[in-house]
Design a protein around this nucleic acid. Structure first.
Lengths: 224, 224
DNA sequence: TGAAAACCTGACCATTTGGTCAATTTTTGA
DNA sequence: TCAAAAATTGACCAAATGGTCAGGTTTTCA
């Protein structure tokens, strides 16, 4: 954010706020489907229900729309690590984080895809954010996880790589939905699919962190 | 492949083979960096060291180049599930698969990125492949894993979701390298980084599948 | 109520870019 | 050696597209 969130100054009247929202919603969909270069201002305008010239009244350039979309997305990503604190129980904290991330994948897949696309192409717009805010946040949370490990509360897992793994495991369901659908034989992922996926990721990660509690119906020890 | 691999008929002379290779190498890089729409024939031509018109002699359209690149990539992806057979030891088979996938991420990141980009945008070109060959392959390998589970050789993990997780965990290091670099504080990922990443994924997955064997230097029981 | 500010938009333009083509050169193989 | 096949390429084109702008309408608020 910071530089990214540098919205045009001024009071931002009622109409502006409303239309900017519509434009960003439309843009998120279009950027997700086609990427930055593939997205056209005409298509965004059509989807937003505004003439193209009007887009350029609110956002000077396509890049500006793109940055605004990314900025909005980054806000979603931030507030999820709340519960990862030294005195929380690792199991509860990780469970909450995974469930929140999976919910985001299910509810805002386009947001995840725009973000993924930006990363895929080298993060030209959000590189500074990644190396700044995000890195700092992860470093802090990595410290928490290390304290859990030192206290014998979970298995020794590299905390930084753990976060990378958590993002990969959860966002894959939004980013690569086409592949997931093909494997599962679905047209699209429904709530039941996401429930099963969440359950899988949860079990898998908890086991991977040595936090597995066997459920009643499958009473087996962790190490077979 | 199949439909994708439908290369132009004919004997394919020496020069043709050589120049097609150069074009595909260049295209892989350019498509990875810019996506399908962002890639230009002019840039591919420049990188391949050929005049643009010459590209159109070998490949009629940009889409045809793109399909050829994807086809080449899919061949890399296929031959990796060799060792996943009913009589293999789960630990060895998964270890081999993960190490192979991580090696691919390290050695051919652009290939992974082109593939990821295609998935991200709904797999318009390889959807048939995903729903056909890939799905069949995964279904078969899922059967193997189920047999391992039934034999009590590993923890009960949804086999289809397990494959999705394995792909996500390994390919994230190529696809989202920008993010990984930012978190780890690197300019780019070196061999040491990949070694550490492979070790992490391996430990994480094996533990997640109930296949963890403590290494000498950290002798702790699986379930803390 | 009235004028300043905000908002709207059809028409237009310059650039980029995928693709074509015809003329030419190089390679092949009988 | 020589003709047929393969390969090469500069010049060119039509379409798509990001962006501009001048002149208009609507909203705001003192």
């Amino acid at each position: 954010m910071t530089a990214l969130a540098a919205r045009r100054p001024g009071p931002a009247g009622r109409i502006r706020q409303q239309h900017e929202g519509a434009i960003l919603d439309a843009a998120e969909t279009v950027f997700a489907r086609a990427g930055f270069q593939g997205a056209t201002m005409a298509e965004i305008a059509l989807k937003a229900g505004l003439p193209k010239a009007n887009l350029h009244y609110y956002f000077g350039t396509k890049a500006e729309v793109y940055r605004a979309v990314l900025s909005r997305i980054l806000q979603l990503w931030l507030a999820e690590t709340d519960r990862i604190t030294p005195d929380a129980a690792p199991r509860d904290a990780l469970t909450h984080y995974i469930e929140a991330k999976m919910h985001l994948s299910a509810s805002r897949p386009d947001a995840s895809r725009v973000f993924a696309n930006e990363l895929l192409h080298g993060a030209p717009e959000i590189g500074d954010y990644l190396r700044g805010e995000l890195r700092k946040l992860v470093a802090a949370k990595a410290g928490v996880i290390e304290s859990w490990i030192a206290a014998g509360q979970m298995a020794p897992v590299d905390p930084q790589h753990l976060f990378i793994s958590l993002w990969a495991l959860t966002q894959t369901y939004a980013d690569f939905e086409a592949q997931v659908c093909a494997i599962l034989g679905r047209q699209q992922l429904g709530p039941a699919d996401y429930r099963r996926a969440t359950e899988h990721v949860l079990n898998f990660v908890l086991r991977g962190c040595g936090l597995y509690n066997p459920t009643p119906e499958e009473m087996k020890p962790c190490s077979i």
